[in-house]
């Protein structure tokens, strides 16, 4: 176990290193640089001044040299300074990360709690009207553009009914716990609806596979109640592949969070990354993207560990060899 984990962590670190280079180069290819922005903000800066400034900040050096001089401090935890927020990147990131964790965590739990019974229900009634209805719902869920779903929910609940706020995290001037909770309803609903369909499809397919197995027939034959068959024999086996698929879907969940946060002006990581890219805040965009990638890789790792914990047949040591 320890050896396997160490190997996987080293692998993750290598992928992160490759990603940081790739993203650094990509961001270097975005139009303009910080000096261009300074020049456009201050007409007194002459061409000679901007040359001097470029040399001073190292922007005249080739991209790979700049990457190396970014990497050193970054490994020590110094990710630079955010131009947009006028604060060190690390202290900007943390509150956004917290907000996103809240949004994604709530939506994820809700989506899983809804998807498991839906998937099992559809699988047990395969080919019947209930299955068709759930199937239709799932196809709708994976086909709906999330930003449009957000707009529809806003139109219904914020404009037409006036029950819920259309965006933000709290009423201007601050509010209590209840006020924050009310602001979370629409973003969480959007993200949940956008992910529940995919999970339910995984669960349905996986449950159908397990229901065909001999041990299910044996369990029924020996007189086990239907609820015991489903909860004890089917659920645990059906859950295994679903865990992997759901964890591999973490990147998609993050993409959904970016859209949801942008639509509802919710100050989370996704919106922060989008705003940073739009405002040419390179340091912040880079750190945000790398953090998102790291979280996705760790989710995949957690899935493999969870798989091993649930399935005694899987030996991680053997997998590592």
């Amino acid at each position: 176990m320890g050896r396997y984990l160490a190997g996987r962590l080293i692998q993750t670190a290598l992928v992160m290193l490759a990603m940081s280079l790739a993203v650094y180069l990509l961001i270097g290819l975005m139009p303009g640089d910080p000096i261009d922005l300074m020049v456009s903000g201050d007409p007194r800066i002459t061409a000679a001044d901007s040359e001097r400034l470029r040399a001073l900040h190292g922007l005249d050096r080739p991209l790979w040299e700049r990457y190396l001089s970014w990497l050193g401090p970054a490994l020590g935890g110094d990710l630079g300074y955010s131009r947009l927020h006028a604060q060190p990147v690390l202290s900007v990131l943390m509150p956004y990360l917290g907000n996103t964790a809240l949004l994604m965590g709530l939506s994820f739990v809700l989506a899983v709690v809804l998807a498991l019974p839906l998937g099992i229900w559809a699988a047990r009634r395969e080919g019947e009207p209930v299955d068709h209805a759930i199937n239709l719902f799932c196809f709708a869920g994976i086909s709906v553009p999330p930003f449009w779903l957000a707009l529809l929910l806003m139109m219904l609940f914020a404009v037409a009914l006036g029950w819920l706020p259309a965006g933000g995290v709290e009423t201007v001037g601050g509010g209590g716990f209840w006020d924050r909770a009310v602001h979370l309803v629409l973003p969480v609903a959007t993200l949940t609806l956008a992910s529940v369909a995919g999970y339910a499809r995984f669960m349905r397919a996986s449950t159908i596979e397990v229901l065909r197995r001999d041990f299910v027939r044996t369990a029924r034959a020996k007189g086990a109640s239907e609820s015991r068959v489903v909860l004890h024999h089917v659920l645990r086996n059906a859950l295994l592949p679903v865990i992997t698929l759901v964890a591999l879907n973490f990147g998609a969940l993050f993409s959904g969070a970016l859209i949801t946060e942008t639509m509802f002006s919710y100050p989370g990581m996704g919106k922060m990354i989008y705003d940073a890219i739009m405002a040419n805040d390179y340091n912040l965009a880079l750190a945000g993207l790398l953090l998102a990638t790291l979280l996705t890789l760790l989710a995949n790792l957690a899935a493999d560990l969870g798989y091993a914990a649930l399935d005694p047949r899987v030996s991680l040591e053997r997998a590592a060899a």
């Binding site: 990603m19 993203v23 975005m30 139009p31 970016l258 996704g270 990354i273 990638t293």
Partner: peptide, 16 residues
């Protein structure tokens, strides 16, 4: 596959 696709697409779409 492990990339958070949308943020990466946004960066790629923004390059010059």
């Amino acid at each position: 596959i492990a990339l958070p696709l949308l943020p990466v697409l946004i960066v790629v779409a923004a390059i010059d």
